[in-house]
């Protein structure tokens, strides 16, 4: 139940998190997944991550480029576009506003429960 709830929360914000992983420069799927896992957001499999990257690419928020590698078949690198950066700034504000409302409500509820 806790995992399902966490999964639902993440689905709503995963595109923002992926965009945020690209603000420092280009990256690729494994590095993005590793960064999100390192931030405590769980192990995000390719079947979840790449549809998000595809949607962001189709929306023009990121640009993907495949580069062959000497060691293996190669990787697709992603870079944030101007539109992506603007969308990230806009939607981060909206998410933080939502987060604040949720936190305030739950904090107030916890205080009330604690008092009774």
């Amino acid at each position: 139940m806790a995992a399902d709830r966490r999964s639902s929360w993440l689905k709503g914000v995963l595109d923002l998190l992926v965009l945020s992983c690209l603000t420092e420069g280009e990256s690729y799927g494994y590095e993005i997944s590793k960064a999100l896992a390192g931030a405590g957001l769980g192990d995000i499999k390719g079947g979840t991550l790449y549809p998000v990257l595809n949607r962001l690419e189709e929306a023009g928020h990121v640009v993907g480029e495949f580069r062959a590698s000497a060691r293996g078949p190669g990787r697709r690198y992603y870079r944030l576009t101007g539109d992506g950066r603007a969308a990230l700034a806009r939607q981060t504000g909206a998410w933080l506003e939502f987060h604040t409302a949720v936190r305030d409500t739950l904090t107030a509820s916890k205080s009330t429960t604690g008092e009774t």
């Binding site: 790449y50 078949p73 990787r75 697709r76």
Partner: peptide, 25 residues
């Protein structure tokens, strides 16, 4: 390179990855 293990049997194992990992949309 985005390969994830998806099973093993005897002495061989299999890996999968979405084709989007190389071809995108």
């Amino acid at each position: 390179d985005a390969w994830e293990p998806c099973g093993h049997w005897a002495f061989y194992m299999y890996f999968k990855r979405p084709k989007a990992a190389s071809a995108g949309p």
